[in-house]
Write a protein that binds this DNA or RNA. Structure first.
Lengths: 152, 152
DNA sequence: GGTGAAAACACTCTCAG
DNA sequence: CTGAGAGTGTTTTCACC
C-alpha cells in the first residue's frame, strides 16, 4: 500500500501509544478526527498495523534474564530446517528466532527468570530438538535499548 | 507488586491484543467488567503494563532488512561505555542494544530497508561512534519467530 | 482527499451494596 | 467482586468544500 508522510507520522504516534483518542492524533497531525479515523482504519485493513498490544515490564513480572543463543545445525537439509523451525515456534521462552547469514545458522532470543530457569530450558527443551549441532549462549548484562517501533 | 494467576492470564491477553473491551476480557476470565477494569488500572499504575502500542508490519513499511551487529569496544573504561551507550540510544535504526557477556561487548539489532541503507548506516552513523574496536554483522535471512510478549 | 456536525451506539468509569 | 447508572469517546453517515 502507498503511504504518505501523514501516514508515517501517524504510524509513529501509534507505535508509541495506541490508546490515545482519535481526536488527539488529529490534533497532533493537524487534521480532522474523521480524516484520521479513516486513515487508521485503512492502515488496519491493509495490514500495515498488524495488532495492538500491551508492553509488560520485565522486572515487574520477574523475567529479567535475557539470553541470545546462536545455533548451528548438523546438516542443512530442507527437512532439518523445517523441523527445527517448527519445534522452536512451540517454545514460549523463545521470543525471537532468526535464520541468519554467517557462521551460525540461527539466533534465538530467550526470556526467562534466571540462570536456573535457563539451564532447565536448555536441558529439557532446547537440546531436545533434533539436528542441533552446537550452541553458544550470551547473556544480557544490561538491556541498553529496546524498542518495538520500526524506525520510519 | 504481587500478581495472582488471574493477573498473569490478563497480562497474556493484553500482550496479544489490547484493544478488546473490558467486557470481553471479563468474559474470558470469568469475572465482572468492574473487577477486570480495576485489575487493569492497577497493572497500569504499578508499571507492570508499561504502555500500549501498535505493531507495524515490516513488509508493509518496506523495512525488511534486519541485522544483528556484534560490537567490541577498544577499551572498557566507565567513560567509554557510558559514551557508547549514549550514542547508540540516539540511533533510531537501532531497535535493540544489549550489553552482553562473552567475546563481544554489545549486540545491536538494526532495522533498515536494504543492504544499501545498512551500508550507509554503518559508514555514516555507527562507525562515527568512538571507542568501537571491531564489529561483526549477521543478516536475517528469515525471521522465523518474533513476539513482543514476555512468556508468563 | 479533506471538513464539520449530528445521531446512535458502546465503552469507560464511579459508586452503592 | 457485583450490577447499574452517568459520562464520554467511538463510529457512522451526511452535506459540503
Amino acid at each position: 500500500m502507498k503511504l504518505d508522510a501523514i501516514d508515517l507520522k501517524l504510524l509513529c504516534l501509534l507505535q508509541q501509544d495506541c490508546k490515545k483518542t482519535t481526536k488527539e492524533y488529529a490534533h497532533q497531525l493537524g487534521l480532522s478526527t474523521t480524516a484520521v479515523y479513516e486513515r487508521i482504519k485503512r492502515l488496519e485493513k491493509s495490514g500495515t498495523i498488524k495488532s495492538y498490544v500491551a508492553l509488560v515490564g520485565k522486572v515487574e513480572v520477574d523475567k529479567t534474564f535475557i539470553v541470545f543463543c546462536h545455533i548451528k545445525l548438523v546438516q542443512h537439509t530442507r527437512e532439518n530446517i523445517k523441523q527445527f523451525e517448527r519445534e522452536v515456534l512451540k517454545l514460549e521462552e523463545v521470543v525471537e528466532c532468526h535464520h541468519l547469514s554467517g557462521d551460525y545458522d540461527y539466533l534465538l532470543k530467550i526470556v526467562v527468570r534466571d540462570m536456573g530457569d535457563y539451564r532447565n530450558f536448555m536441558v529439557s527443551k532446547l537440546t531436545a530438538i533434533n539436528h542441533i549441532g552446537s550452541t553458544q549462549s550470551s547473556f544480557t548484562i544490561k538491556e541498553v535499548k529496546h524498542s518495538t517501533a520500526i524506525p520510519l
